[in-house]
Design a protein around this nucleic acid. Sequence first.
DNA 1: TCAATAGTTCAATTATATTGAACTATTGAA
DNA 2: TTCAATAGTTCAATATAATTGAACTATTGA
Lengths: 103, 103
Amino acid sequence: MVQFVHPSIEDITLTGVLSALADPMRLRIVVSMTEKNDCMSCSEAAPCSSMAKSTLSHHFRILREAGIIRTVKVGVENRNVLRSEDINNRFPGLLNEILKYAN
Amino acid sequence: MVQFVHPSIEDITLTGVLSALADPMRLRIVVSMTEKNDCMSCSEAAPCSSMAKSTLSHHFRILREAGIIRTVKVGVENRNVLRSEDINNRFPGLLNEILKYAN
DNA sequence: TCAATAGTTCAATTATATTGAACTATTGAA
DNA sequence: TTCAATAGTTCAATATAATTGAACTATTGA
């Protein structure tokens, strides 16, 4: 049984968030999640079909451990949501400012 | 004679800026440059004295190639300035938003 | 029961970061 | 003019992180 580790709000760091968003693929994942504004499976939010699923899994882990997404396994798939509220509490305005220029 | 390469404004990328600022040491360099609000030599802006100068040189190169600082060699030292105006033209508000939460 | 689905984990390879050592260029003093 | 000191760069070696294929786990639905 896979259990995911998520940082609490106070453990979200600036450089952690920046590192996570400093990758074009992860930025695209986050952008597609803001557009959907709902849970997305990993494959649904995949930035491109050519990426190996182990790489995709790695990127989701980075986003998760930076505190940017929350992942829950439901049935056979993972349901990922943006932790917009948490990030906005921790760093008000930051995420929107970055996403303003993403894509 | 060392000649430094700087990207033009339109070649500054979001992920480039985020990658450059996603490192705690580079973030401290940038913060100390905003506090000084003037040219700083590499060693003057060094985030800690224990860092090898080759590592420091590497960090300044990353910042330079991301378009965050401009470097000119004057005499024996490098004079580094933040390209605040350029970054603000390219991504209005982004740099201030990030620096708001730095350190 | 068993194949399909959705993802994780592992091990190997590739790429990036860190550092000491050797180098370059400039200055200032003897 | 020589030469040591200063301020950095570059190089080669090592250490750390990213990418991927292959094997694995867990869940569902036929």
